[in-house]
Computed example of a mutant assay.
Amino acid sequence: MTRLPALLAGIALFTLLAGCGAKDEAKPVAAASQPAEAAHEEAPLKLSPEELARAGIKVEALKAAPLADAVEVTATIQPDQDLFARIAAPVEGRIVSVAASLGANVRAGQTLAVLESVALGEASSALTAARAAQRIAEADFKRAEALQAEEIIAQKDYLRARAELDKAGAELRAAEDRVRVLGADPGSAGRSGARLAVSAPFAGTVVARKATVGELASPSEPLFAVADLSKLWIEANLTEPMLARVHQGAQAAVSVAAYPGERFEGRVTYVAGMLEKDSRTVVARIEVDNKDGRLKPEMFATARINAGTQVEREVLAVPDDAVVLLQGQPTVFVAKGEGFEPRPIDPGEKVGGRTVVKSGLVAGDSLVVSGAYALKARLLKSQISDEH
């Protein structure tokens, strides 16, 4: 009988110890769950004053601003085709001198190159002969006219002299026309002989040159290209949905990567009447002044064309440089207390160097408008340190 109470006392002691052990094991689990919940609320990223200055951090209060309805498209800069010329030799000949270099500014009528042409030499000789024949015919006619007035010669001799003068005049005009067609001035053809000057049709810049001394020039191969670059064409391709919003005469602003933050004002002067079959787009042309010569043909550009079909609307828009990608999500940094916190956003259209924000921010948020990439690098560095 003495063994049974001892056995029951042992079972009770084991149960009590097991219960205490279960309580002790549950405590670490509860403690571990608390930091996991806190991990969802990251502490603001804090930088020292020296780090802030080095990163160039600038903060602005976000506010809604009016945004005009506009179309933004990529474009290419081209010379004004009305002020662009490819200049070829009007007649086959050998180049004897070149007077214009690539990139040179030239005047209207300035000589670009000189060539010698056998055809022009023959035409010049024929012109000289025609002029001599015309002078003889004119002298014969004047003598016949005087003799006919005195009734010394017959009427038929007078008429023959007049016909010879008309014939000589026609042959002279034909010889002058031939010299003119070959690109020379009939007035100086006799003096210049077989030499021909190739000149600029208007003032501009030599943008292409293929003329080389000693080579043979022909009418089918341009020797120079001259363009007046004081006005340029910005050619943009409009998709079908854009057509109803863009019209001739609309104001436009053009920006290029070479001059960040600058806008070159212009207007739409032409919208093509046909859709391009392959690209399914329509070409729109914007004319801009380029008197300072900073814009260059073949540059890529971004054109913002005022559509004018809707009134301005109030939107929240942030600078494009304020938006960074964190884990594939467009994100901005907002000043919070003494630090900065990343804020995911839903971006909309890009207009004039700013990104419209559909959601994620509200008016009054203190937005980091400069230095966002430095904050991103600091944030990633701190996350890597935490993992280790």
Rank of each mutant, 00 (worst) to 15 (best):
R267W: 08
R94F: 09
E51G: 02
G360S: 00
R313C: 08
G103M: 11
A55V: 02
Q310M: 12
Q134I: 00
L380S: 05
R378C: 02
E215V: 06
L52A: 12
A68L: 04
I77D: 05
L367Q: 02
R263M: 12
E41A: 15
K376E: 09
A133S: 14
Q134V: 06
Q329F: 08
H247D: 11
L380F: 06
A108Q: 07
E215N: 09
S124P: 01
A227E: 01
R313A: 10
E298L: 13
L325H: 12
V198N: 03
A175Q: 06
F84E: 14
R191H: 11
V268L: 08
I152K: 12
K277F: 09
Q251C: 03
Q155A: 14
K27L: 12
K23R: 15
A253I: 03
R245N: 12
S125M: 08
Y270K: 13
R162Q: 14
G187D: 14
P66K: 14
L16H: 01
L232G: 03
G193I: 01
P222S: 06
H40V: 11
H40W: 11
E265Y: 04
K167N: 11
A9N: 06
D292V: 12
A123V: 02
Q78T: 15
H247E: 14
L17D: 06
D365V: 02
L62R: 03
A123Q: 04
G371F: 13
V181S: 13
A6L: 12
E314R: 11
L17H: 05
E145P: 11
E276Y: 09
G21A: 15
I57V: 00
P28F: 07
M242R: 11
R195S: 13
V179Y: 08
V357S: 05
I153H: 09
S117T: 07
W233Y: 04
S366V: 03
V246T: 00
G352R: 08
P347L: 02
A322S: 15
P79V: 03
P342R: 00
V268Q: 07
I384F: 10
G328H: 02
D140Q: 08
F340N: 01
V356P: 00
I11E: 06
T76P: 03
Y158V: 00
E314F: 07
A65I: 08
L16D: 05
A374Y: 09
R313I: 09
K231Q: 15
L102C: 05
G348A: 09
Q251P: 10
A170H: 07
E387P: 03
Q34I: 15
A303K: 05
Y270G: 05
A104I: 02
A257M: 08
R131D: 12
V106C: 07
F264D: 06
W233K: 02
S279Q: 11
R378H: 03
F300E: 12
A217K: 01
L379K: 03
L7N: 04
S117V: 04
V324Y: 04
V323Y: 12
L379N: 06
A113P: 00
K23D: 13
E145W: 08
